[in-house]
Amino acid sequence: MELNALSAEQIIKDTCAGSSNTIDLTKCTFVEVSGIIRLVLLARHLTFEKRSIQMMIPQSEDVQGYLERANVFNELKGYCTFNESIEHLQHRERNPTSTLVELRSLDEENQARAIIDCFSTSLKAHKSINSDIMDTIDKVLFETLQNISEHANPGDFFAVSHGLAALQRYKKKLCLSIGDLGVGIRKSLTSNPKYPESRYDHTEAIKAAISGYSRHADIGRGGGLMSVVAAIQKLDGWLKVRSGDVAVTIAANDQQRVDQYVLFPGTQIDINVPLLQS
């Protein structure tokens, strides 16, 4: 089993829509950042729903090590129990890796700059990351991370949106995932009476957001996510915007695909950019 966006959706379905209180990762052999972002958000969400979740950790020591390096166990602390002790992992020295930027939390906008600088520093050293990719990832992070604090809980300055971001560089691609447990795109957009809930379901709301619509009355606002889509497409990449009960995937050629999932709070964005072989 691989823990990626797709398999994480099955886990979300089993736990959120079903009655399972166990997240079984024992057979997990590979992990993607899109999967771990959803996994951590799911555990936190279920805790807020007063559910006691047990996580069966992967049997593979490599995967255990990866999850530890990715800061997953730390971010899950207090949100679930584990079927076996993970203490030995936490005492192990983390081997620094330049291909992974572990889960970073973002609850306030002033943390965004530090996260962006950290991601940039990690990417700078690699020959396969040219300046176009560096610049695009920075722009994407500026727009998406500020959205977490700005749109995740509009009007509630004290709300914690549980923003998370992680990045993994592979030989042929770069994967970036950002997610939160805020109100999601539909509720944010339809807080503007110009976009009534009756006309904007989750799919239409996501499509509106990536086309430049915004909850703000100011006509100049709302171009952030639209600029993210254009920048990623320019690099022949694709992105997936998941909010409510759907995910809209936008390909480099602008083709869109809508996938139906179970209702889940917040917004999760996965970005995939191909890398040139060095």
């Binding site: 920075d138 100049g220 171009g223």
Partner: peptide, 17 residues
């Protein structure tokens, strides 16, 4: 080196408007 849409809006487009 890099300027995001939001930053361009705040620093150039809004003052220009």
């Amino acid at each position: 080196e890099v300027m995001s849409h939001s930053f361009a809006d705040e620093t150039i487009a809004i003052p220009l408007s």
